[in-house]
């Protein structure tokens, strides 16, 4: 994927070195966001006063209890939702809507069922914004399919594939546009445990190759630790940032020899995250009990 590397900016390779000097790629400044409920004339606040910076080339995981506003945060970056207060900026510019620099991987895959795998991937290249010349589309699609290990399935329909394979198509579709930022909303939430682990290993490999900046939502503590450079823990609604944890485990983490999952450091981070999230989960329960 020579082109991907070229596209994802020279800074990416050295992201670790000049973290301090380079401005953040994604920046949320005192963001409060929510949804209007028109029928009840109320507004549900999903996130309150969230400030966060995502560096170029970073893999950021967001964890938190259900309904804490994780998805709202990713939707803010994607440009689906506008903040009530504060602002979300990408490369210093205010996000006003979706853009070709940001691609998304959906939990339910969101593949067009009437299109073959190849044509689903082409969908990302044939629209008005981010249009890729026809001649180039086939080559790019083939490259993206090779990247996710789906060569040979070009002519298959999504319903003929397993959940894991469908999500690979979803990832290939997102990567084929060579976006700077990859937004992943619980991408492995709907696949079985075995496939999930294999997919995590594969995602690590893919991102090591394409060097995207990733914002990744997950329910799984282990998944967050295994994949992320930093983990943001969000409290229950209205979501605020509870803590940001640096994951200083060596990469590649899915290496048999390294066996990161059994390292003491992994255990430490895991139990720390667990205590944070258990607080939140128990807090939610107590609230229900006192009501």
């Amino acid at each position: 994927m020579g082109q991907v590397e070229a596209h994802s900016a020279p800074g990416a390779q050295h992201a670790a070195d000049d973290r301090a000097s380079e401005p953040a790629l994604i920046e949320a400044v005192h963001v409060t966001a929510g949804y209007d409920n028109r029928r009840e004339h109320t507004r549900l606040i999903a996130l309150r006063d969230v400030s966060l910076q995502v560096r170029r080339g970073e893999f950021l995981a967001i964890v938190g209890p259900s309904g804490c506003g994780k998805t709202t945060f990713i939707n803010l970056i994607a440009g689906f939702v506008k903040p009530i207060e504060g602002s979300v900026r990408v490369r210093g510019e205010e996000v006003t809507g979706p853009g070709a620099d940001r691609a998304m991987v959906f939990q339910d895959y969101a593949l067009l069922p009437w299109r073959t795998v190849e044509r689903n991937i082409r969908f990302a290249m044939e629209n008005r914004r981010g249009h890729v010349p026809k001649a180039e589309q086939a080559e790019r699609a083939a490259r993206a399919l090779r990247l996710v290990g789906l060569t040979g399935f070009e002519k298959s329909y999504p319903h003929e594939l397993s959940g894991g394979m469908r999500q690979r198509v979803g990832i290939a579709r997102a990567l084929v546009t060579e976006p700077e930022i990859l937004l992943m909303d619980e991408p492995f939430g709907a696949v079985d445990a075995m496939t999930r682990e294999a997919m995590q290993a594969e995602l690590e490999k893919i991102i090591a190759e394409t060097r995207q900046t990733v914002v990744f939502i997950t329910h799984s503590i282990d998944e967050a630790i295994l994949l992320a450079d930093r983990i943001v823990v969000i409290s229950k609604r209205p979501g605020t940032i509870r803590e940001v944890i640096d994951v200083d485990l060596p990469r590649p983490r899915f290496d048999e020899q390294a066996d990161v999952q059994r390292s003491p450091r992994f255990g430490e981070i895991r139990s720390h995250l667990w205590s944070l999230l258990a607080d939140e989960a128990l807090g939610a329960k107590q609230e229900v009990a006192t009501r």
Partner: peptide, 11 residues
């Protein structure tokens, strides 16, 4: 989510 995918991918 299909409509959102359309929006994300520039339709």
């Amino acid at each position: 989510s299909l409509v959102r995918a359309g929006v994300v991918f520039g339709a």
